[in-house]
Design a protein around this nucleic acid. Structure first.
Lengths: 122, 122
DNA sequence: ATCTTATATCGCAAATATACGATTAAATAA
DNA sequence: TTATTTAATCGTATATTTGCGATATAAGAT
């Protein structure tokens, strides 16, 4: 059964996965793109440029907000969103760090062991 | 209904989302970490360090392979996996480009318009 | 040829995600 | 006050993901 095993991984692994998950839908990528270009947007503007219903866009915005990637302010009857660049940099940095660090180790590994047996690609 | 609207977004948006989706599970983050540290691993080594059944790990490996993030070679009765750094750099680069570019535009936007109305955070 | 080892795949159950219309809520306009 | 505008939330249907045991497959060992 799909009994969440997610807790059995490290916090950092879970955090990175959660960040990636927030980006794992084209609609949310598109929303972030719009927000970045416009600096800030009200919900309606985003609804106008996406091929989705208002309720669906609202849901995607909620997910982005829950993941901490965007901030929302209430402006009268409107909701104004903008990218949380700080959070973004934090996660991108963690990713870069993770994979830069690993790449160095990887290079080292390449030098140390070269057990290139006959092996066919698939 | 959940009738996929994904096709209605740009190819680049879909590609980035697909890349993110491949990273959107702690097990897959953990697998990539192990692969990067060891340079290459046979499936069994990964199964040993993850809190998941062999069939589940195999599935996660398949997803990473389908996303193009890892390569697999058959070594006798074993399967040997390694990270596809090229693909990784491509996607990380695209992300960095997307958000660097947008950040510049964002900064410009900040200078141009500063309609800071009273607005409460939520 | 049979047994063992290593891994992929199948089939299924449970959990999540996606999408939308309808409704609610809250601020402003008439 | 009532109507309108804007966005969040609810309820629901469907699709996808996650996870595992069982089975299949394929190479090696006995």
């Amino acid at each position: 059964m799909a009994t969440h095993k997610k807790e059995e991984f490290t916090q950092k692994e879970q955090d990175l996965a959660a960040f990636a998950k927030a980006l794992a839908h084209p609609a949310r990528i598109a929303i972030l793109k719009v927000l970045a270009q416009q600096n800030e947007c009200i919900c309606g503007q985003i609804v106008d440029v996406l091929p989705l219903a208002q309720s669906t866009v609202s849901q995607h915005l909620k997910e982005l907000k829950n993941a901490g990637l965007i901030n929302g302010t209430i402006d009268g009857p409107r909701s104004c969103y903008c990218i949380n660049w700080k959070a973004f940099e934090k996660f991108m940095g963690e990713f870069a760090f993770l994979f830069n660090k690993l790449k160095v180790q990887n290079t080292k590994g390449l030098l140390l062991k070269t057990n290139n047996k006959k092996r066919r690609l698939y």
